[in-house]
């Protein structure tokens, strides 16, 4: 079972500040999620370790350089940034 305190704590860790209404919604959603995961767990054979949906392992990349993105592209979503940096103004 999930408690409201747990939901509040997770929200705090995620830097989310919830109104009491939003907390109620999040609480109900979280209950549903945990219930669903518990259902999945019931289906699982406890002797069998499931690591991944597929049986892949060692998906590696060679250590070879590919040119990075132009900086204008990188800073496009933050209105061009400031002096080449991502920029956070001092909070008031």
């Amino acid at each position: 079972m999930v408690t409201k305190e747990e939901v509040l704590n997770i929200a705090k860790l995620s830097k989310l500040y919830l109104t009491s209404e939003e907390l109620e919604d999040a609480f109900n959603e979280m209950k549903g999620i945990v219930k669903f995961v518990n259902q999945v767990n019931e289906m699982q054979n406890p002797d069998e370790e499931i690591n991944h949906a597929n049986e892949l392992f060692n998906a590696f990349r060679e250590d070879e350089i590919v040119p990075s993105f132009p900086r204008e592209k990188i800073l496009e979503n933050v209105e061009g940034g400031k002096e080449g940096f991502f920029y956070l103004e001092k909070s008031q």
Binding site: D63, I65, V66, R71, I74, L75
Partner: peptide
Amino acid sequence: LTKTKIFCSCINGFGAEPNTHCCP
């Protein structure tokens, strides 16, 4: 001391202009 970063192929290097060794 790798040539590239751990999860992408951007250069692993010190002292470059800010945000020039970056990708999505």
